[in-house]
């Protein structure tokens, strides 16, 4: 990482802290250190987990990139997920979720460590739909794999289950209610049993 002396502005980007910031991306449960080294109009060099990767990159339109890496053409669509630093990245093989971890998110996750990590689980609706049944109530113990909420969308009903055994801390939806995608349905404390 290129160090910039404290209090001195970097000549290139004229922003104090740019080079001093470190980033990571999370892809498929892997955390990859990533750092921008050089960027021109259509080419860039990026350090990925210590490897220097040189590529051609052009933004064709908002969220749509043409990337040429080792002369191979990649067309990639990147769509941000609202309210997060996560992106849906579609590269023709599949759509994957990528999270960019910056100093802010690292700070937040450090601060919250011990209270939330592993201990609490939220069951989130992955899709918009209508709550058909809520099968648990606050304070109720649940077993791993127990169905907690049933949601109906597009004429199909899907069951949402507890990942691990625990106790229901909060039920955030009621029967008949319409939910958005990514809305929290139920919070479970896995430390209690």
């Amino acid at each position: 990482m290129a160090e910039v002396e404290k209090g001195k502005k970097c000549k290139k980007c004229k922003i104090l802290k740019l080079h001093a910031m470190s980033y990571e991306v999370k892809l498929k449960n892997k955390t990859i250190a990533i750092e921008l080294q050089k960027r021109t109009e259509d080419r860039m060099t990026v350090k990925v987990d210590g490897r220097s990767v040189e590529l051609g990159l052009v933004r064709v339109k908002q969220g749509s990139y043409s990337i040429i890496l080792n002369n191979k053409v990649h067309n990639v669509v990147v769509v941000p997920i609202k309210g997060t630093k996560k992106f849906l990245v579609n590269n023709f093989i599949e759509t994957q979720e990528v999270e960019v971890i910056d100093s802010e998110s690292r700070y937040l996750s450090n601060r919250c460590k011990g209270t939330s990590a592993d201990g609490e689980g939220t069951i989130v609706a992955p899709i918009p739909g209508k709550v058909v049944k809520v099968l648990v109530s606050k304070g109720q113990p649940v077993l791993a794999g127990q169905t907690v909420v049933i949601i109906s969308a597009m004429k199909m009903e899907s069951e949402f289950k507890a990942l691990k055994a625990g106790v229901v801390v909060d039920v955030k939806v009621s029967e008949g209610q319409t939910v958005e995608g990514r809305q929290t349905l139920v919070v479970i404390d896995f430390n209690k049993e």
Binding site: V25, L27, V53, Y65, I67, L69, N91
Partner: peptide, 9 residues
């Protein structure tokens, strides 16, 4: 490619 595209965005 996927990581870099998300990072640039």
């Amino acid at each position: 490619v996927v990581s870099i595209a998300a990072f640039v965005e």
